[in-house]
C-alpha cells in the first residue's frame, strides 16, 4: 500500500513538474503584460473594446470579453488576425499586423490569454 502511495505521489509530482515546465516554454512570455502594452490602446484595459483610441475609429475594436463572439472565432483565426492584421481575416484594416513585433511563442501566449479574457474556447 505504501509502495502504491509512493508511486502515485511520484507520478503526480512528475506530472506537475512536466506541466509546469511545458507551460513555461509555451507561456514563459508574460501575455498579460504584452496585452497591456500593445493591445489595450484599442481593446481597452479590461479587453472590452473600449480603448483610449476608439473615439476616432470608424470601426470599433472587438470586445475580447464577449464569450459568444469570441467562441465563434477559432484559435487559428485569432492568431492570424494578430500576426497578419484584420484584413487577412476579412476584418478591419484598423487591426494592424503584429507579425514583426511578436514571435511564435508570444502569438500562442496571446491567443491563450484571449481565451482567458473571454472565458471561452473555440
Amino acid at each position: 500500500m505504501t509502495l502504491i502511495n509512493r508511486s502515485v505521489a511520484g507520478a503526480l509530482l512528475f506530472s506537475a513538474a512536466f506541466i509546469f515546465l511545458t507551460s513555461l516554454s509555451a507561456y514563459g512570455v508574460d501575455a498579460k503584460l504584452i496585452y497591456r502594452t500593445y493591445c489595450t490602446q484599442c481593446h481597452g484595459l479590461d479587453g472590452s473594446g473600449k480603448g483610449v483610441n476608439t473615439e476616432s475609429m470608424s470601426v470599433q475594436p472587438r470586445d475580447h470579453t464577449d464569450p459568444k463572439g469570441m467562441s465563434a472565432i477559432s484559435d487559428a483565426q485569432l492568431r492570424k488576425a494578430i500576426a497578419k492584421g484584420g484584413l487577412s481575416v476579412s476584418k478591419s484594416v484598423l487591426m494592424p499586423p503584429w507579425g514583426a513585433t511578436f514571435n511564435d511563442e508570444e502569438l500562442d501566449a496571446l491567443v491563450s490569454y484571449l481565451r482567458e479574457l473571454c472565458k471561452c474556447s473555440e
Binding site: 502594452t37 490602446q41 484595459l45 479590461d46 473600449k50 480603448g51 483610449v52 473615439e55
Partner: peptide, 16 residues
C-alpha cells in the same frame, strides 16, 4: 508609455 497613463471609466472608453 500610454499604457501607464490611461484609466478605466465604467461603461465608457478608457481615458488619458
Amino acid at each position: 508609455r500610454y499604457s501607464e497613463n490611461i484609466k478605466r471609466v465604467s461603461g465608457e472608453d478608457d481615458m488619458v
